[in-house]
Each structure stands twice: as structure tokens, then as C-alpha cells.
């Protein structure tokens, strides 16, 4: 497998299926780990950093699930390729923008991605379409166990897994669920939901940036506390209480929108389609904003011009790096708007 092969599909997390997939786009679990015998990256020398990278890259590709993984040395690829990995949710923005020896291993189906030398030496991540936290936990924990056979992770009896930032100490787990909440945004109940989640010490962010102004009505809910609870208990908070509740709110809001003012709802959906179908210049954020009501329309069976898989293809491939990879050349923002509109029109023709 090579890096360019990734673009042939949208990856597992954008398959659009899995439990609660009408609201939950994808779920993700990440574990932070550090090698016990090396300092954290803030004080590691360049040669030590390279040694950590080599060691972890070798181990990550020799576990049962890592054998077929693609190892990407982020120091050796260009910024468009790095941005493409960010758009596919395989690496963080911070990892793409970092410096020095660092990389990622990606499983062929893109459900697992191990970031090496990001903030911690290792971040084991698994992501899937829909609400699948239990399966994800099985995945990441198995990778963790396999790696721990040959590697000694920094661990303290009292504090658990030791991480570069004390906010991740203990389990080192970050659970995050990406939700599509267009109806709650329209009814303006989103702030209330965000507040309730924050009261439970969960972070709520827009997919692109801080605050609750989310482009494309996509929100990420994640835990902030990593110490004093078991991984299973942290996951249970999401699967048993917070996520089903938000999903229920969103579904109710959708129903009430359809009941109260179906014409307004349909107008929003079909107007978005009209714009995408005919625009000659379009930005990435406008595209994301227009795809949102169409995603809603597909799930509410009020839109039938194309299906979820094409929607997700557009969602991924119209982002700046993917667009440039498709056209095979670097494009500035102005050029991208034209190429993006052409790409969408072709797909919808």
C-alpha cells in the first residue's frame, strides 16, 4: 500500500453506517503512551527523537494488526500530503505542522492510525463510522497489549500512564464522537446541549475550530478527565448516557422541524442542492455548509438525488488537500474554488 492508495476510498469512518449513524458520523478512541526509558519529546534531543521514531515505527508495523499498515514518515512527504492525512482524520493538525522525526502508521482500512512523536511518543487511535466505542476500545487495547510485549511504557502505580501533559495522565484515553446536529442548530438548542455536556466535564467543539460555531453542523464531543476512572467507565458515559441523549434531542428536533415547517426545511435542503449543482466557484467552508442540509435530507428521506456515499465522497474530496491531489497539482485558494465547483458539478451531473 502507498499513500496515494488512500484516496481511492473515503475510509471506514465515512462509510455512513454503524449504530445511530443518522446523527453519529463517526467515533474515535485514542490512547497516549510514552516509552519509559526516554524523556518526553519536549526535552528529547534530535537523535533521541529519531531513535524513538525508529523504535516505535518498527514495533507498530510488527504487531498482528500493524503488519499490513502503511508507515508514513511525515518528515518526508510534502505539506499537501500531510494536510490530506489531517482531512482523513488520521493525524492531528499539530502532528502535520510539527517538526523533526515523526510519522504515522495507517491500517489498510484506515480504522487504525498510530501517531508517532506527536505530543507523546505514541498515540494509538482507532476510528469507525457510527457509534462503535466498544469495538474501538477492543481495537486500541489490543494494539496497546501487543506493543507492551516488547515496549516498556512509562507507568506509575499511582498515576497510571505518564504523559507529556498532566491533563492526559492516568488512562491516557481520549474518546470523541462526531455528531451531525443540524436540527439542534436550527432550533438554537445546541447551546443548551453543549452546556449540559460541559457540566459533565466533556468538551464540545465544532469540527473545524473552537467554540460552538461549527462548519457543516458537525460537533465533536470528547472527555477531558483521564484519571480516576477506568477506560470502560469513561466509554460508558458516552455510550449509555450522553450520546443517546443528544441523538434523541436531535431526532426530536428533526421531527418537529418537519412537522412545524416542512416547506422551510425542504427549501433549505433543495436550495443547497441547487447551489452545489450549479455553482461555478465555491469555497471549502461553503461546500461543507451546503452538504449539511443535504445530509439531513438523506437521513430524513426528503432528498433522493444522490445517496450518503456520494455525499461523503464530496465531503472528503472537496477539502483543499484532497482537491489538489485529485487535480494532480498545487492550487491556490482562488483556483481551488473553481476546480472544486467543477468537481462537484461533474459528480452531480
Amino acid at each position: 500500500m502507498i499513500l496515494d492508495d488512500l484516496r481511492k476510498t473515503t475510509g471506514e469512518w465515512l462509510r455512513g453506517d454503524g449504530p445511530m449513524s443518522d446523527v453519529v458520523v463517526s467515533s474515535r478512541i485514542r490512547l497516549a503512551r510514552n516509552l519509559a526509558e526516554h524523556p518526553f519529546l519536549t526535552t528529547a534531543s534530535e537523535s533521541e527523537r529519531t531513535e524513538i521514531y525508529r523504535r516505535l515505527a518498527a514495533e507498530a508495523t510488527s504487531t498482528p494488526t500493524g503488519a499490513d499498515a502503511l508507515l508514513v514518515d511525515l518528515d518526508e512527504i510534502d505539506s499537501v500530503d500531510r494536510a490530506m492525512l489531517v482531512e482523513r482524520h488520521l493525524i492531528s493538525r499539530q502532528h502535520a505542522a510539527g517538526e523533526g522525526s515523526r510519522g504515522v502508521t495507517v491500517s489498510p482500512d484506515e480504522t487504525q492510525a498510530l501517531m508517532i512523536n506527536e505530543e507523546d511518543h505514541l498515540r494509538i487511535q482507532a476510528l469507525r463510522s457510527g457509534m462503535q466505542l466498544e469495538a474501538l476500545w477492543t481495537d486500541v487495547s489490543a494494539v496497546d497489549d501487543a506493543l507492551a510485549k516488547n515496549l516498556a511504557f512509562a507507568f506509575d502505580r499511582q498515576l497510571g500512564y505518564l504523559t507529556a501533559c498532566p491533563t492526559n495522565v492516568g488512562t491516557g484515553i481520549r474518546v470523541s464522537v462526531m455528531l451531525h446536529l443540524p436540527a439542534l442548530r436550527l432550533t438554537k438548542d445546541i447551546e443548551r446541549v453543549a452546556r449540559a455536556a460541559r457540566d459533565m466535564r466533556l468538551a464540545v467543539r465544532g469540527l473545524h475550530g473552537e467554540g460552538t460555531e461549527a462548519i457543516g453542523d458537525l460537533y465533536q464531543v470528547s472527555n477531558q478527565t483521564t484519571l480516576g476512572k477506568t477506560e470502560e467507565a469513561i466509554i460508558k458515559t458516552f455510550s449509555d448516557s450522553i450520546i443517546p441523549k443528544i441523538v434523541e434531542y436531535e431526532r426530536t428536533a428533526r421531527e418537529s422541524l418537519a412537522k412545524k415547517d416542512a416547506a422551510r426545511l425542504d427549501d433549505k435542503i433543495w436550495r443547497a442542492y441547487g447551489l452545489l449543482r450549479h455553482a461555478r466557484k465555491i469555497s471549502s467552508s461553503e461546500t461543507q455548509a451546503l452538504l449539511s442540509p443535504i445530509r439531513l435530507g438523506i437521513h430524513m428521506q426528503r432528498f433522493d438525488k444522490f445517496d450518503l456515499s456520494l455525499l461523503n465522497e464530496l465531503f472528503l474530496n472537496t477539502q483543499p488537500a484532497h482537491l489538489q491531489k485529485f487535480s494532480g497539482k498545487q492550487l491556490d485558494e482562488k483556483e481551488r474554488r473553481i476546480v472544486r465547483a467543477d468537481y462537484i458539478r461533474n459528480k452531480l451531473a
Binding site: 526509558e37 487495547s141 507492551a148 506509575d156 499511582q158 497510571g160 495522565v169 488512562t171 480516576g228 477506568t230
Partner: peptide
């Protein structure tokens, strides 16, 4: 740490199989 983790002071989650060796080696 207590403040960041809702008053928690002790890890109760997963422990690596090699914990004892690890702590010493570390």
C-alpha cells in the same frame, strides 16, 4: 492533577502486564 481530573488522585484503569518491571526500568 486533582483539578484537571475532578479530584481524582489515583489511576484505576488498565495496568500494563509488565508494570513492576516497567517502573524499575523506567
Amino acid at each position: 492533577i486533582e483539578r484537571a481530573h475532578e479530584g481524582a488522585t489515583h489511576h484505576v484503569g488498565k495496568v500494563p502486564a509488565t508494570a513492576d518491571v516497567t517502573v524499575r526500568r523506567q
